[in-house]
């Protein structure tokens, strides 16, 4: 249920951005969420919808979430692959030593406003 507090933070961020850009309405909010961010996207979206509806600035805003797979880099040959679950070995050289990069991001990418 920490998704709700993150949605609260997002709404506060949107209000700040709208003030800064003198916008009257926010139409689309694009967010990148890593698969390992520990966020349930449905709960986050639900929290955002509930909170956004409370204010005319965000009441018509659409939340677009892009899920990001983590990147796995082979420690041996350097090959990289994006995968939802950790591969057991490198597809190029079969080394089991893979280092994860990212996949836990939680980023407000872009906001469309009027």
């Amino acid at each position: 249920m920490h998704e709700f507090s993150l949605a609260q933070g997002l709404c506060a961020q949107l209000h700040g951005l709208a003030r800064q850009h003198r916008a009257k309405k926010i139409t689309t909010v694009r967010v990148d969420i890593g698969r390992l961010a520990g966020i349930v996207v449905d709960s986050f979206t639900f929290g955002f919808e509930v909170l956004a509806a409370e204010n005319p600035l965000t009441s018509e805003a659409r939340l677009a979430v892009t899920l990001i797979d983590p990147l796995y880099r082979c420690d041996n040959c350097g090959a990289t692959v994006r995968a939802e679950t950790p591969p057991s070995a490198c597809s190029q050289c079969a080394s089991p030593s893979l280092v994860r990069e990212g996949g836990d991001e939680l980023i407000l990418k872009q906001v469309e406003m009027e």
């Binding site: 003198r22 991001e105 407000l108 872009q110 906001v111 469309e112 406003m113 009027e114």
Partner: peptide, 20 residues
Amino acid sequence: PSAGDNTKGFTVDVNQSLLA
């Protein structure tokens, strides 16, 4: 982004963590 008629939509790239 400052003045003028705001009837047209515009896009702002934010690229900021939600946990900032």
